[in-house]
Design a protein around this nucleic acid. Structure first.
Length: 229
DNA sequence: GCGACAG
DNA sequence: ATCTTGTCGC
C-alpha cells in the first residue's frame, strides 16, 4: 500500500448514487453559465492550463501568454494528490478541481482561460472548461480532441468548420471536420460566446493540432511532472 | 435495454 | 491521462 505524508493514496470508489448526484450537480451548474462575451477589454492575456499525472499524484500547470502578441509570459505549477478517478462526463471533479485549486493560489488572475476539455459541448452542458470558469468566475474556452456528444452539422461551403448540435442547440464547433486525427472541438466555457471562442482558437493555432497555448501547457506539464513528481 | 463516453 | 516499439503518412 502506497503511503506518503499526505496520507493514504487510494483512488476513492464513487458509488452509483453519488455519480448520479454529481451529474445532477453539473446540470444544475449549467444553468449559471453565461454565454455572452464578458471578457476584459482590451484582452491582455490568456492562460492555458493542463494536468499531468504520475501514479496518484498530479502536477497542474498554467502558462500565461500575452494577447494578441502571443508571447509566453510566465509558467506556474502546483502538485497535488489525485482525489477523484476518471469517470467519463465527470472530468470536472478530477481535473477541474485541481485546476481551480491551482488558480485560486495564483498571484494574478488571467483575463481568459483555455482548457484542454469541453465547455458546454457536454452531455450535461457543463464540461470541465465551463466548470472551471464558473467556480473561478473567469472567462473560459474549451478545446478538445474528441467529440463527447452532439451531431455534426453540414460543413459550410468552402469553410473548414462544422457546428455541433445537441438537443436542437448549437453547442460547439469542430475545426478540420472529417479527418478525425486532426479535428479539434471548440466550445464556450463561461462568459465567452462561441464566436469568440472560435476566433481566439483560430488565432492561436501555430501548426500544431491544438492552440499553441495548450500545446505549451501540455509540454510543460509533462516536463515538470517528470522532474517534480 | 444497449452503447458511447473529454483527460 | 499513462504505459510503450515500431510504423504509416506528409
Amino acid at each position: 500500500m502506497k503511503i506518503n505524508k499526505e496520507g493514504l493514496k487510494i483512488k476513492p470508489v464513487i458509488s452509483e448514487k453519488n455519480i448520479l448526484k454529481l451529474k445532477q450537480l453539473l446540470i444544475k451548474l449549467s444553468k449559471n453559465i453565461r454565454l455572452q462575451d464578458e471578457i476584459p477589454t482590451p484582452l491582455k492575456n490568456i492562460m492555458g492550463v493542463d494536468v499531468a499525472y504520475k501514479e496518484e499524484r498530479a502536477l497542474t500547470v498554467g502558462v500565461l501568454f500575452s494577447w494578441p502578441e502571443l508571447k509566453h509570459q510566465n509558467t506556474f505549477y502546483r502538485v497535488d494528490n489525485v482525489h477523484f478517478p476518471y469517470i467519463p462526463t465527470l472530468l470536472s471533479f478530477r481535473e477541474g478541481t485541481l485546476i481551480i485549486r491551482f488558480l485560486k493560489n495564483l498571484p494574478l488572475k488571467p483575463d481568459l482561460l483555455m482548457v484542454n476539455a469541453h465547455g458546454i459541448a457536454h452531455p450535461f452542458q457543463c464540461g470541465c472548461a465551463s466548470y472551471i470558469g464558473l467556480l473561478t468566475d473567469t472567462p473560459s474556452i474549451g478545446v478538445a480532441k474528441k467529440i463527447i456528444c452532439g451531431e455534426l452539422t453540414k460543413c459550410e461551403e468552402g469553410k473548414n468548420i462544422a457546428y455541433l448540435r445537441f438537443n436542437n442547440k448549437i453547442i460547439g464547433a469542430v475545426l478540420n471536420p472529417g479527418k478525425r486525427s486532426k479535428e479539434i472541438v471548440v466550445s464556450a466555457g463561461h462568459r465567452v460566446s462561441l464566436e469568440t471562442a472560435i476566433e481566439i482558437t483560430l488565432n492561436t493555432l501555430r501548426g500544431y493540432r491544438l492552440p499553441i497555448i495548450l500545446e505549451d501547457a501540455h509540454r510543460k506539464a509533462t516536463e515538470l511532472s517528470a522532474e517534480k513528481l
